[in-house]
Design a protein around this nucleic acid. Structure first.
Length: 877
RNA sequence: GCGCGAUUGGCGCAGCGGUAGCGCGCCACCUUGACACGGUGGAGGUCACUGGUUCGAUCCCAGUAUCGCGCACCA
């Protein structure tokens, strides 16, 4: 197209308010956008036209945070840009209401407990008020619990949606999902069944990281190290000849669970012992001394006690050395009540009874007391600080418990898949690029497959039953699976084909898998959920793999990685082509802002105070991946810019700068003849080119910054220079030239700023254009090619420099800027003088200069000198 | 231990081989007919440090320091 990128709308009635203001724009425009479906996705489309966004589903039960405004705005800016470049933007939003936070919130809000064993009650009504005592809370079925969750989430979501629309997110609100709704459950279960069928999901009995508070297994990605005080206890094992073997341990309570001692194969101190047996202190259990390269000679005594299971290294040794299993800590975090059969001596059994049923803490106390009694511990325990593994939401150290769990192959035990996933990571464009190394670090450090089963009640249940044999034992090898068409199902209340409800739990009958899928196992499917995988093949094929995944860098190892895993197993592709990592909001002390620190700012207050465009300006000023201090100062600047945009637009439009928006660059070239005017358009063309390039690289902050810089020079210099001419002081042709340049520039500025400040720009747009700026095309440099051809972009800044010199003289003389200059001299090199000459008439008008001497000289800088001011004296007045 | 990022005027940040930029704050001035929710001008930095490459380094390379983050280890 040879047009000037001004869109295809004919001018509408000019209607510029006398006193434009930001106040009220949010409400006015959001309802207009909703009425006209400005941001609706058009299903009648091709894949090439679509730009699809895998928006992070916020935890609806969580609190609103300025961080939400920050990262969601950054995505929205990109979405708006893409829409203006002609993309059919697929921009849905989900709500994450699947998982522990929602479970706890629903429990406490209604005063109910979920019990999957209970049948669904269609007449259930939640208690009006939660009973005071948790023991009195009614137990309800999973189905009823999910309904309550949806009910409550609906309320929570309204608050979020209100915030997000006020903020101006151009989300297609007709396309929302919840991670616990029937559609998401269906996709989640279907994906699980597909993964199971393809061998990507499997069940295994294995040592598992276990949170004793939540009574559930947790995955590697949910672990967090915390520094905790511990103590080395120096304890002696006994050789057959009576010699002592000293070991050091931080967990003496695990002595009865000891299965071996391990030292490094090259450690000469212990080489003679390898293969021999020693007996444990207190309990007199025989264990073998083994060699393994993971044992560190310089750590502790150089020889370690292996227990089932004290830490992950124990698990490695246990597996690789094929040691016995003598697990004692149960799912409640207590030692087994029964004295284990491997402790045979009467003394040993007696001693175990002193710790049977005890918590880890009490058991340790008991063991230490006994060791002191028997003299098998040397000296006092040596206190140390050491990292201990915690569930990220838990406050007690994790234990390792053997249990039957579901896993998904994620490369943790499979080098080929690991390689494949790293390769997929390299197929994605990371913004910023360096974030990819975090992904690779994580993938390379995986130490096992992804544990997806959770021993919770609320969540997406595994769509699996097991046959019970004649003894009532479940057959885990041959699970009964539902038909895909029946999904979603709840196996706890639904019956597999060919069975009846009265066979549940009965020998020869069946049982349901009791577990639910980890919340990440569903969240990892947001691209599939959002694009209608398995439900709407047409939509899916036009939107997947998605174009963009925005998210925080703190959940690369969880959300980003798990999504990559599922796309690989289910589609054999990347889930998206671009991933944009937002930074964190830091408080002014440069700590991550969080609720617990009590430094949280309420988003709605901020929006009220500064306006949405201003808040967006703050968010969009930060690059992707950059942690950013919460700074209301930046919002003030954004507000100032938005107001300036309104006022400058009002001025330009009131001058009559309102050319037809379908005028071509060629036609414009006929009109815009003044060199200063051509100069500003030449600069505009460069700006458009650079801003577009920045956006294409996801550097929206740069696009904003250069647009802003241009805009201020436009208002401060150009607009000031041309006022006289624009009023017609130098004839119609000169006036026509400047008015066309003004209209063109204003039109472009509105488009350039539209992604950042959707309210102010669309408001101005409505004063003189039809439709919404958000559906107007993004400007292109080609749109200005003819009018800019041969123009000298340096005229404006050079004349601006001269104007600055005149202003400085007046400022230093402490007189009004309007003060008349009788005469002034401008000295500069030949080309600069030529440029000043091109704008001389405007310069004289703007500086109120009667006579200007332009002097060519061999100088580096343009200078303004010999300024003679006409100073009004009191008498003259 | 491995890896990533940051270090630029009081503060917040750009920039990136060719004589240091922006905004806030500060100082002085100006109610000029788009805007006082404004305008004009000004002061303020040996670009963390040490080497190297180069005609030339804030920018490239190597190393050091400090801060932040990720991963791993964790007897």
């Amino acid at each position: 197209m040879a047009e000037n990128t001004l869109g295809t709308d004919t001018p509408v009635t000019i209607n510029v308010p006398d006193r434009p203001a930001l106040e009220g724009l949010e409400q006015k425009l959001t309802s207009r956008w909703e009425e006209t479906k400005t941001y609706a996705f058009d299903e009648n489309t091709t894949r090439e036209q679509v730009y699809s966004i895998d928006t992070p589903p916020p935890t609806a039960s969580g609190s609103l945070h300025v961080g939400h405004m920050f990262s969601y705005t950054q995505t929205d800016v990109i979405a708006r840009y893409k829409r203006m470049t002609g993309k059919n933007v697929f921009y849905p939003l989900g709500w994450d209401d699947n998982g522990l936070p929602t479970e706890r919130r629903v429990q406490n809000y209604y005063g109910v407990l979920c019990d999957p064993a209970i049948a669904y009650d269609p007449d259930f009504k939640a208690p009006e008020k939660p009973a005071k005592n948790q023991r009195d809370w009614p137990r309800i079925s999973r189905g009823n619990f999910i309904e309550l969750c949806e009910e409550l989430a609906t309320e929570d979501e309204k608050v979020f949606e209100q915030l997000f629309t006020t903020l101006g997110l151009s989300v297609d609100w007709s396309r929302t999902y919840r991670t616990i709704d029937a559609h998401s459950r269906k996709v989640s279960q279907l994906a699980f069944l597909k993964d199971l069928e393809a061998g990507n999901a499997y069940m295994a009995e294995a040592p598992t990281m276990w949170d004793i508070t939540f009574r559930t297994a947790v995955a590697q990605a949910e672990l967090e190290d915390k520094e905790r005080e511990g103590a080395y206890h120096r304890i002696s094992f006994h050789r057959p000849d009576g010699e002592k073997v000293w070991i050091e341990t931080t967990r003496p309570e695990l002595l009865p669970a000891c299965v071996a001692l391990v030292a490094h194969p090259d450690d000469e101190r212990y080489q003679p012992l390898f293969g021999t047996k020693v007996t444990s202190p207190l309990f007199g259990v025989e264990v073998e001394v083994k060699a393994h390269p993971l044992a560190q000679p310089d750590k502790g005594a150089g020889i370690a006690m292996v227990c089932t299971f004290g830490d992950t290294t124990d698990v490695t040794w246990w597996r690789e050395l094929q040691l016995d299993t003598r697990a004692l800590i149960g799912r409640d975090g207590r030692f087994a009540k029964e004295t284990p059969e491997w402790i045979t001596s009467a003394e040993g059994r007696e001693r175990y009874e002193r710790m049977a049923g005890a918590t880890v803490f009490s058991a340790q106390k008991a063991v230490v007391e006994m060791l002191v009694e028997t003299g098998e511990m040397e000296g006092e325990p040596k206190k140390i600080m050491h990292p201990v593994k915690f569930y990220e939401k838990g406050d007690k150290p994790l234990e390792i418990v053997a249990s039957r769990q579901w896993y998904i192959r994620n490369g943790g035990r499979d080098a080929d898949r690991r390689e494949k996933l790293i390769e997929r990571g390299r197929e994605m464009n990371w913004h910023p690029a360096f974030m990819r190394s975090r992904y690779e670090n994580w993938v390379e450090g995986l130490n096992g497959d992804w544990l997806i089963s959770r021993q919770r009640f609320f969540g997406v249940p595994f769509p699996v039953w097991y046959k019970l044999d004649a003894e009532g034992e479940p057959d885990y090898e041959n699970p009964i699976l539902p038909d895909a068409a029946s999904l979603p199902i709840d196996p706890a209340s639904e019956v597999p084909a060919g069975y009846t409800e009265d066979q549940r739990g009965v020998a020869g009958g069946f049982i349901a898998d009791p577990d639910v899928l980890d919340t990440w196992a569903t969240s990892s499917l947001t691209p599939q959920i959002a694009t209608g995988w398995g439900v709407d093949d047409d939509l899916h094929s036009k939107t997947f793999p998605m174009d963009l995944r925005p998210q925080g860098h703190d959940i690369i190892r969880t959300w980003l990685f798990s999504t990559a895993v599922r796309a690989e197993t289910l589609a054999g592709s990347v889930p998206w082509h671009n991933t944009a990592l937002s930074g964190w909001i830091l408080d002014p002390d440069r700590k991550k802002m969080s609720k617990s620190k009590g430094n949280v700012v309420v988003p709605n207050d901020v929006l009220d105070k500064y306006g949405s465009d201003a808040v967006r300006y703050w968010a969009a000023s930060a690059r992707l991946g950059a942690d950013t201090a919460y700074d209301e100062g930046q919002m003030k600047i954004g507000r100032r810019l938005a107001i300036k945009l309104l006022n400058a637009s009002k001025f330009v439009l009131n001058l009559g700068a309102i050319q037809d928006s379908v005028i071509t660059s060629e036609q414009q070239a006929q009109v815009v003849t003044n060199e200063l005017d051509r100069s500003v358009l030449a600069r505009l063309a460069t700006l458009v080119e650079e801003a577009t390039r920045a956006f294409e690289n996801y550097e929206y902050a740069r696009a904003l910054q250069i647009s802003e810089t241009f805009f201020w020079s436009f208002t401060d210099d150009y607009v000031e220079l041309i006022k006289d001419r624009a009023y017609g002081a130098r004839g119609e042709e000169e006036q026509a030239s400047v008015l066309a340049a003004l209209a063109t520039t204003l039109d472009a500025m509105l488009r350039l700023f539209a992604p950042f400040m959707p309210f102010a720009t669309d408001e101005v747009w409505s004063w003189w254009r039809a439709g919404s700026v958000h559906r107007a095309p993004w400007p292109t440099a080609e749109g200005y090619s003819a009018v800019v051809n041969g123009a000298d972009a340096e005229v404006l800044p050079t004349v601006g420099l001269a104007l600055g010199g005149l202003r400085k003289s007046k400022s230093e003389a402490k007189v009004k800027q309007r003060t008349e200059v009788k005469v002034a001299t401008i000295t500069a090199d030949a080309s600069s003088i030529a440029r000043v000459r091109a704008g001389e008439a405007d310069l004289k008008a703007a500086g109120n200069v009667a006579e200007l001497n332009l002097v060519e000289g061999d100088v580096d800088e343009l200078t303004v000198s010999d300024v003679e001011l006409v100073v009004e004296t009191e008498e003259a007045k």
